[in-house]
C-alpha cells in the first residue's frame, strides 16, 4: 500500500451546515417539549440504566438536535422506561415520549 503521508478520518466537528436535522424537526413536531431541554443533566443523574452503561437522555436529545443521529442509536435500546427522568426534569420535558419516538423512528 502506498503511504500518502496522511490519513482520512471523519471530521470531528459538528457541522451544522451539512448535518441532517430532519429527525430533530420531526421530533419537535411530535413532541414540542424536545425544544425546552436546558441540559441540566437531572435525567442522566437519576437514570436507572446509566449506572450500568453509558446512556443519558440529555446526550441523546442534544445529539439528535445537532443532527448527530448515528451516535445515539446504541443508547436508545438501553432505556427501561422507568420514568425517573420524567419525574425529575425541571423543564417538564416528556422524556419517555421522546425516547419512544426516537426508538421507533431509528430502530423499531
Amino acid at each position: 500500500m502506498i503511504n500518502w503521508q496522511f490519513t482520512l478520518h471523519p471530521d470531528h466537528t459538528i457541522n451544522l451546515d451539512t448535518n441532517d436535522r430532519t429527525l430533530a424537526r420531526l421530533l419537535e413536531e411530535k413532541e414540542p417539549t424536545s425544544r425546552i431541554c436546558m441540559a441540566c443533566g437531572s435525567c442522566g443523574g437519576t437514570c436507572t440504566a446509566a449506572q450500568f452503561e453509558p446512556v443519558s437522555f440529555r446526550h441523546i436529545l442534544l445529539m439528535v438536535r445537532r443532527g448527530e443521529t448515528e451516535s445515539v442509536r446504541s443508547e436508545l435500546t438501553k432505556c427501561m422506561y422507568c420514568g425517573k427522568c420524567t419525574l425529575v426534569c425541571p423543564r417538564g420535558v416528556n422524556t419517555r415520549h421522546i425516547l419512544a419516538l426516537l426508538r421507533t423512528m431509528l430502530i423499531n
Binding site: A49, F52, T77, K78, M80, N108
Partner: peptide, 13 residues
C-alpha cells in the same frame, strides 16, 4: 404488536 422483536441492550452485572 409493533415491538415484538424488541431487545434491551443493557448489560447488568
Amino acid at each position: 404488536e409493533r415491538h415484538l422483536s424488541g431487545n434491551l441492550h443493557l448489560t447488568i452485572p
